[in-house]
Amino acid sequence: MNVKATEKISAGTIARFVLLALALVNQALTIVGHSPIPVDEDGVQQFISLAFTGATSLWAYWKNNDVTKKARTKGE
């Protein structure tokens, strides 16, 4: 009988998903006019929010995030 071993989701994968979720919430709040990052100038706030969202999205996309059980299975 061939038993497949699965790994747990790594802490790095969880951290990337949490940061991506925070970036998306921050972006949504900025779009509707709230100020999640206390900056006086609108242009600076929008740039920081966009940069945070963009960097987090690229980081989460670039890393190999083994989320599904099949992807975390070792062996065959």
Rank of each mutant, 00 (worst) to 15 (best):
A11R: 10
E7I: 06
L22E: 01
V32S: 12
A60Y: 08
T30M: 08
V3M: 10
A28V: 13
V3F: 07
L22R: 00
A51W: 05
I48A: 02
F52R: 00
Y61E: 12
K4P: 01
F47E: 06
I37R: 10
T56R: 00
T6H: 13
Q45N: 11
T68K: 04
D42K: 08
L20D: 00
S57F: 15
I37H: 09
P38Y: 05
L29C: 04
T53L: 12
V44Y: 02
P38E: 10
P38Q: 10
D40R: 05
V39S: 06
W62A: 14
E41W: 12
F52C: 02
L22D: 00
E41G: 14
L24H: 03
K70C: 09
T13D: 06
G43W: 04
K4R: 11
T53P: 01
Q27P: 03
K63D: 15
A5Y: 05
N2S: 14
V44K: 00
M1P: 07
G54E: 02
G12E: 09
L19E: 03
Q27W: 13
A28M: 11
I9D: 00
I9Y: 00
H34G: 08
R72Y: 05
S57G: 15
W59E: 01
D40E: 12
K74W: 06
A23C: 04
A28G: 10
R16G: 01
F47W: 08
V39L: 14
T56V: 02
V67R: 08
T68C: 03
V44Q: 02
N64Q: 12
D66Q: 15
I31N: 06
V3T: 14
E41D: 15
K8T: 13
D40V: 09
S35G: 07
K63P: 15
E41H: 13
A21V: 11
A15Q: 02
L20G: 01
T6D: 13
L19K: 02
W59V: 05
T73V: 14
T6R: 11
T68Q: 01
T53F: 10
I9H: 00
A28F: 14
Q45S: 11
I31W: 10
K70N: 14
R16C: 03
